[in-house]
């Protein structure tokens, strides 16, 4: 027969409070006493059910308490430490990435380049193409070309340098507009139209040609005294008494330069026809 003390002993065993000889004696009795063993089994079963039932009861009671607690003031608002840390890490990460990007942009695009040592110019340095003021006419060229306004001395020097046979030299004044005089010059096989601000250009050139012819005569005279020398005294074309620009224009046998021809530094070269009466 299971009594009150047996129940207490079984409770102690279930709670793990039996140790040493008490535990050994208890286990010996379970093996030998069938009624006691059955009582132990039933009590373990009952305690397990009581624990489950207790949990259900506790849950139900807790739910009621929770509704009361909610009404009494509820719970503290939640702040996630992990989320805050995560946000902080994201912010720091973003700042680092932006700083790195800004640094990269500065380094590759905005950073001032160190001053470069300019290499000394070498022979390969391209020089600007020389401007041809007057093309070199071919030997048989009879075309008429305009040259830009140079000083009278320059123009005279040009002709002196280029002229082969001073006896072929002739000059005609074509026009005089706004103080710019246009002359047609012919020497050797070249016909040129030049412009000058020198009103006495024709006379000076004619004088130059005559001087050259005279000089040649004097040089040849001691060697060939018996040889008659053909001389040509070039005379400048007769000048009109007055030089009204309008009349000059009409008299011009060749194409006139534009009326607004003012002293300009460069003028585009203009090939004129071959049908000039020379």
């Amino acid at each position: 027969m299971i009594n009150e003390n047996d129940i207490a002993l079984i409770d102690a065993f279930i709670a793990g409070k039996l140790i040493g000889n008490d535990k050994t004696d208890f286990e010996m009795r379970v093996r030998s006493d069938l009624e006691f063993a059955k009582a132990v089994r039933q009590q373990i079963h009952a305690v397990e059910h009581l624990e489950i039932f207790g949990a259900v009861q506790m849950g139900a009671s807790l739910r009621q308490d929770m509704s009361q607690w909610k009404q009494q003031g509820g719970y503290k608002p939640y702040k996630s430490d992990m989320l805050a840390k995560s946000m902080m890490m994201k912010v720091i990460g973003t700042v680092v990435v932006l700083a790195a990007a800004a640094g990269a942009v500065w380094y590759f695009f905005l950073k001032e380049a160190p001053p470069k040592v300019e290499p000394l110019p070498t022979q390969e340095t391209e020089l600007p193409e020389p401007v041809e003021y007057a093309p070199e006419p071919p030997a048989t060229d009879t075309s008429v070309s305009f040259t830009e306004l140079k000083t009278s001395e320059d123009q005279i020097a040009d002709i002196q340098l280029n002229i082969q046979d001073p006896t072929t030299f002739s000059i005609i004044e074509l026009s005089a507009i706004d103080g710019v005089y246009t002359y047609q010059i012919a020497y050797d096989d070249v016909v040129k139209v030049i412009q000058s601000q020198d009103p006495d250009m024709d006379e000076r050139l004619t004088q130059m040609a005559n001087d050259a012819i005279e000089e040649n005569k004097q040089r040849q005279a001691p060697a060939k005294t018996t040889t008659p020398t053909k001389t040509t005294n070039i005379k400048p074309a007769p000048k009109p008494a007055t030089k009204p620009p309008a009349e000059k224009k009409e008299a011009a046998p060749v194409k006139q330069p534009p009326a607004q021809t003012k002293p300009v530094i460069k003028k585009p070269k203009e090939k004129v026809v071959n049908d000039i009466p020379y």
Partner: peptide, 17 residues
């Protein structure tokens, strides 16, 4: 009950979230 109430007050927000 007091312990359970304290747990509710301190931690229910976390569980709700």
């Amino acid at each position: 009950s007091e312990t359970l109430h304290a747990i509710y007050k301190d931690h229910f927000g976390m569980i709700r979230n």
